[in-house]
């Protein structure tokens, strides 16, 4: 039986499931009651800064 893209697409989904499972398993459990407002614009909160273009300073 020839392997198809069904296998590799399934592995890709498995990869993200693994990332989320390991993350939750390591104790990084989110708390929905401390979630920020639905939309950043108009929230009064500062943008987070965790972005590819950000150059953080200690």
């Amino acid at each position: 039986m020839k392997a198809t893209r069904k296998l590799t697409a399934g592995l890709a989904l498995g990869l993200i499931a693994l990332v989320v499972a390991v993350d939750l398993g390591s104790g990084a459990v989110p708390n929905p009651y401390r979630a920020p407002p639905l939309v950043a614009l108009g929230s009064g909160l500062a943008a987070g800064g965790a972005h590819c273009a950000a150059l953080p300073r200690n």
Binding site: V19, V20, D23, L24, A28, V29, P30, A35, G48, G49, A50, H51, C52, A54, P56, R57, N58
Partner: peptide
């Protein structure tokens, strides 16, 4: 850096990208 320490401590399900 503080922003990245915070991201490392929190769930990937709270990270935008």
């Amino acid at each position: 850096a503080p922003v990245n320490q915070e991201r490392l401590a929190q769930s990937v399900l709270t990270d935008v990208t």
